[in-house]
Each structure stands twice: as C-alpha cells, then as structure tokens.
Design a protein around this nucleic acid. Structure first.
Length: 480
RNA sequence: GGCCUUAUCGUCUAACGGUUUAGGACGCGGCCCUCUCAAGGCCGAAAUACGGGUUCGAUUCCCGUUAAGGCUACCA
C-alpha cells in the first residue's frame, strides 16, 4: 500500500475539544505507526462560526499535547494551503466540473422557499429532502438567473435507486439507500464550499489514505462516497470512531463538564496523562497494561482494536491516571510547573531546591499540578488559621505547655533533620510519659494549620528551624 | 418521524464458540501499614439488556424487542 497519510481537520470555532484531541491522537498514532504523515487542515468554511485566534489556539493546544503534525498551517508541506478558506477557487472549479459532468446542478431557491418546502414535507410526515425543483429549469433559464446575479448554490445530484456500501475499518460493512440521501449543497451562495465538498476535494488532493474521524460523520459518508465516484477518484479507507459521552451518555458537550483541552491544561493535568487516558476511551492493547507513553501507544496502536460503542468520559479515572504520572514525573519538570502556578496565584516562589523538597513531599498526595500550588500553601506561607476540628481534637489544655517546652529543644538542635526531629519529639514524649501522637498532632496543626499532609518531621525539615519555631509560637499565641 | 450505529460490573474495558466459579482498571467497602492525609499491600461487593433461534456447547453467530446515541442545515 502507498504511504499512509492522515489528517486531523478541525473547525476553528474556539477551542480544541477533548473528543477532537482523541481523534487527532488516533490519527497521529496511526500515521506514526505506519511511518506515514499526519496533517493538520483547518476547515473554516463556515464564516459565521469562525472565531478569531482559534487556529493559533488549536495549534498551541496540539503542541502542548505533543501531537506534532508533519504538514499544515505554520509548518507547510507541498499539498497546501492547509486552510480551506485559502482554497476557494479550487472548490469552485471542482463544483463546475461536477455540473459539466452531470453530477451536480445549480439551484436558486431562497431560504424562505426551502423552509416552506420543509414545513410542507414535515406536515405530510415525509422525510425532509430537497425536491429538485431546480432541475425543472431550462438551460436558458439557468443562464439568465446566473447572468442576473441571482444567488445560487450547487447541489449534488444523488443517483436514484442505488445502494452505497461503506467498508468501515471499525464498523464493518454499512449500507445506505441513495433514495434516503438528500441532494446536498456542495457550494454555498456565499461562494464557500460545504464540509462535504471541501473535505472530499482536499482529502483527495492531499493524498489522504485513511479517513479517521468521529462517528457523527458516518451518516454523511455515503454523500462523500458518491462524490468520490462522481470525480472518478479512489476511496480512502474509512474508520469511524465511537463517540465520547457525557455521564448521561449523550455526546460529550459543555454544560456537563469541561470539554476543552485547555481546561485540563489549566487544571494541571499532564499532557501525557490526558493522552494516555483518552487513548483508552475506545481502544485498548488487548492485555492488562494501562500506562503508556506516546511512543508506546504508537507501537501498540491498531485501528482493529478500536471499539464500536461510545465511551463515557470518566474524570475520576483521569484523576487516577494523572496521579500516577505525577508520582513518576521528573522533579525538575514539576518544579518548573509549580513555579509558574505559584506565580499565577501571587505566591512568592521559593528556591528551586525548596520546591524540589515540596515535590518530594507532595507528589504522592496530589491529583493535579494545580494542587501543588493550592493544596499545600502552608509549605509556602505561614498558616492564616487553624483547622477547628483538628484543634478541638488535638489541642488539649496541656498541649500548649508541652509545645512551649519543646521550642528551646528545637532551637538547641544541631542539625534540623527529619530523623533528628523525630528523635527529639519522641524522647520528649517519652519523658512526658505520653504517646508521640500527643505531640505530633498538635505540632502538625501548629506548623501547617491542618491535620492532613506530609509526614511531620519531613515537613519540618523542609520548612527549617526558623519557620517552625515561628509557627509554633504563633500557634501558642492563637490556641493557648 | 426516517436513516444509521451501539448494547459485558456504576464507569473504561478483556474474552475474537468450549481453557470462565466472565479477567483487569477507576470508583466503592473492609483489613494491614501508619504521626495525619496520601501512597502501597491484601480482601470484598459489583456485569454478559430481554426474547427467540443456530450449535453437542453461546458473552461470542443470526433474527426480533427494548434502550441509548448519532445524523436528518447554504454547521462542521
């Protein structure tokens, strides 16, 4: 078979949807697996939905995820341009070719006429479909309308009574009766093509061998097949991916949670964790491994193992995957990420060494990068208050006196290390004749303001003697 | 309404006619570990939508029912 060429073809309507990310990922994996090319093509044929900056945003988000494309806006390639609005004359030429060959025709109906037609069909409980009234026009009438500048569209002339068969890699054989297919508009009155025309023309011109896209396109695939036939072009291989679903099993959408990849970026998910998670929504390697790097996914991925049924986007599982990635992520990388997030929160960024200490203490306790900055602020600034329930539970009348006596001991310690601290505290508890917990719990409260968190002695070592003593004294003043 | 697709634990899924007391993961419950919280270890509850076939034998093949979803635009 010829070299694999696949594309991700989003519309620039704002942000990259996680469903789009998965489509992009599968295309990327398939291309890399077969040593082929992964292209990015921008399908901006709907001027009413175009959002300024969306293309840049799409490219940036794809870059964050690590899905580098081989051809596309910004990186070039010899089959460009890769933005459909820059290819308008091409679509017009091909539409005209279709008309010359009798596979398409001009229509001049107004929006009002079409609406009335549709309303009438619905009233009669018929399937809404263009009634081909434009076919009644004589060549001279068409010429006259065109000469007078009457707005027109080009429609596909769907052949009568044929069965369109699609061999889909994930769905198998799917058949459609041409009688059910509408004479789709190919070229709109504003001169822009519809998705159907532009997509087919570009896939052919760009040498796309495999069309891997969401299941929402399955129903319009027969139109595309008809178009390939009308042009006399070879069909690509089709693979329609199962949809990503909301918890209520409808198509994944906003309003029921975050669907923009940027949302996950902002919340502090690692790109490889998101990719790993999303790869498993509709695909699996066939064994029980679940953690895969991008390179490993490339090695293992096959379209044959893509499932058919929709998959609910379960954010709890994502959290679990992200925790696993954070746990094993290299410290310098986490340090960098946390620094940026602390700055964003207006928290003074400590030294890299100090941050590395925070990472060591917290990476097994956080779900997202954001939690490094927001879930353990006591590692950066003195506690503003003390958890009431913890105080009630752990701060007894005698506690103040015990901690007060501990302060000079802490001051006199030679090295302020976790092991030394543990020895000091335990010895003190021993001479007091109480369990170590009687000192440890209130100390934690004094130092961090909460009852949860890293091991007390490790935390105190990281904070250092001055900070710890200061915090204990503040707690004594506040809690007695 | 019509067309198309789908259907295994709550969720993601394994099983490609028999090796299955249907496996794993997330989540949930319990126990262990333990200075708290996590992490980790062990254990547990939890599914083949329903009804017909085909077959010596169906989660697996066929048909129907039901349910869910997608599409039904001069949106993608």
């Amino acid at each position: 078979m010829s070299t694999v060429r696949v594309r991700f073809a989003p519309s620039p309507t704002g942000y990259l949807h996680v469903g789009g990310l998965r489509t992009a990922l599968y295309n990327y994996l398939f291309a890399k697996k077969h040593g082929g090319a992964f292209l990015l093509r921008i399908e901006d044929t709907d001027r009413t939905r175009y959002v300024e900056g969306a293309v840049e945003n799409l490219i940036r988000t794809l870059g964050w995820a690590g899905l580098q494309f081989d051809e596309g806006p910004g990186v070039g390639g010899d089959r460009g341009p890769y933005v459909q609005s820059e290819r308008l004359s091409l679509y017009r030429e091909y539409a005209e070719q279709l008309i010359r060959d009798g596979h398409a025709y001009y229509a001049f109906d107004t929006a009002e006429e079409l609406e009335a037609m549709k309303a009438e069909q619905e009233r009669q409980k018929l399937t809404p479909k263009y009634d081909r009234r434009a076919l009644m026009l004589t060549p001279s009438e068409i010429e006259a309308k065109r000469a007078s500048g009457t707005p027109s569209v080009v429609r596909l002339l769907v052949p009568d009574a044929t069965t369109v068969v699609i061999e889909d890699v994930v769905r198998g054989r799917v058949e459609f009766e041409s009688a059910m297919i509408d004479d789709q508009v190919l070229l709109k009155s504003d001169g822009y093509p519809t998705y159907h025309l532009a997509n087919v023309v570009d896939d052919h011109l760009m040498g796309i061998t495999h069309v891997i896209r969401g299941e929402e396109w399955l129903s319009s695939t027969p139109k595309h097949v008809l178009l390939y036939r009308a042009f006399g072009w070879d069909l690509p291989v089709f693979a329609h991916l199962p949809l990503l679903l909301n918890p209520d099993r409808s198509k994944l959408s906003k309003r029921q949670g975050d669907v923009a990849v940027e949302d996950y970026m902002r919340k502090g998910y690692l790109p490889e964790a998101l990719l790993n998670f999303i790869a498993f929504l509709g695909w699996n390697p066939g064994d029980e491994r679940e953690i895969f790097s991008l390179e490993e996914l490339v090695r293992e991925f096959t379209l044959e193992r893509v499932g058919k049924s929709g998959a609910v986007f379960n954010s709890e599982k994502l959290d679990s995957v992200n925790r696993q990635y954070i746990k094993t992520a290299p410290t310098p990388r986490l340090v960098e990420e946390i620094g940026a997030r602390l700055t964003a929160h207006g928290v003074p960024v400590p030294s890299e060494q100090q941050l590395a200490g925070v990472v060591a203490l917290m990476k097994e306790r956080v779900t997202t990068l954001e939690e490094f900055a927001t879930g353990c602020v006591y590692l950066f600034t003195d506690p503003a208050g003390y958890d009431e329930e913890a105080a009630r539970k752990n701060w007894k009348p005698e506690t103040g006196g015990w901690l007060k006596d501990l302060v000079p001991l802490l001051r006199g310690m030679e090295g302020f290390t976790a092991t030394a601290l543990e020895a000091v505290v335990k010895e003190r508890a021993g001479s007091l004749g109480v369990g170590a917990g009687k000192l440890i719990h209130p100390l934690r409260l004094a130092v961090s303001g909460t009852s949860k968190g890293p091991g007390l002695f490790e935390m105190m070592e990281l904070l250092g003697r001055d900070v710890c003593v200061r915090r204990i004294e503040r707690a004594l003043a506040a809690l007695g």
